[in-house]
Amino acid sequence: MTPSPYLFIVIFCGIAFAFPLLPLALAWLWRRFFQPPKPGVEKNATYECGVESLGEAQIQFHSQYYLYAIIFLIFDVEAVFLVPFAVAFTGLPIGAFVAILIFLLLLIEGLVWAWNKGCLDWGVRV
């Protein structure tokens, strides 16, 4: 009687299971006898940089922070325009000079407005 052609698949599956499980079982046995678990408060701590963790990880930024971010962004973009302006300063016609001056004044006016409104005071809620 010839064995079923599927028998080989069954044998193969058995070996495939035994191949990873055997070392795992051996490691587990080794751990039982020669690797006594020693958990502790420090060892089970989440962070491993040596410094004790303080407070909560899920903190929130104050919503007022977005105003600072926007004001910063305006002057960040302004710097992008100012650098080519400074580089080409000597060769510029008077019209371009006046244009960039108006641009600057507009931004400064915006800053003064925000300042007056109290956007830069951290304690005051707008």
Partner: peptide
């Protein structure tokens, strides 16, 4: 203290 804490976190 940080060194002792790091030592504590090392496995045997």
């Amino acid at each position: 203290p940080q060194i002792v804490r790091l030592y504590n976190q090392m496995p045997d």
